[in-house]
Amino acid sequence: MLFKLIEKNKNIITSPTFKKIIIILFIICLTLGLFEALILSPSDYLQSDAVRIMYVHVPAAWISLSIFSIIAILSLGILIFKNKNFVIIAKSLAPSGFIFNLIALVTGSIWGKPTWGTWWAWDPRITSMLVLFLFYSLYLLSWRIFDKQKAINISSCLALIGVINVPIIKYSVNWWATLHQPSSIKILSGSAIHSSMLTPLFLMTASFALFSVLIFLMKYNTELIKLKNKGLNRL
């Protein structure tokens, strides 16, 4: 059923109109998000205006984790069902996940200096995010180094091994003594963050997610055209 759904929606994914809609939504969300994050939202009583780094750091971390989890699920599908479309989707998702991971690490480091007094600490959350960054790098490298079939198998295995790190990142703040505070936003229970800070956080998350969708669409189109180019050679 999932295969049929993807096949059915392939035309929507490749249509330029769909991309335009995503771009427009991204611009709207980003403009509102930036206005809320930099102007309207209050400064923190303890961290003062340094707290505004949260509006780029947290969404970037959330999205890089989500993208890696999706890649891992797709990789399982690739290894079991040998579905070619899953390969293209996973490959197209990786670059934006990698960049969001890099943003989370660098902005986290910048945030660490005024808050903890250091640019870097071998804290469990930071270290596990660095491990995720290494997995993203290896995943992308495997596509460059190996030939197609080998790259599919190796990258899928890397994603499946790397996904073990995702719950470690999530629960590292509960399992070990860390510089990071425990989760302030929980899906099942209420949030510890005031709505004046929660609104820009969600707007920025939405805009980052839309940006990753946009990059995914462009990359997916590129991969499809590459395949079609090979198909034209055979005519």
Binding site: I53, V106, T107
Partner: peptide, 29 residues
Amino acid sequence: NGYGLFVWSSFIFTFFNFFVLFLITKKQL
């Protein structure tokens, strides 16, 4: 409040990366 360098460098780094990723992906397409 004295944190401008940290806040602005974080935002600039983020959007610079967005811009570069968009350009590279578009170029490939």
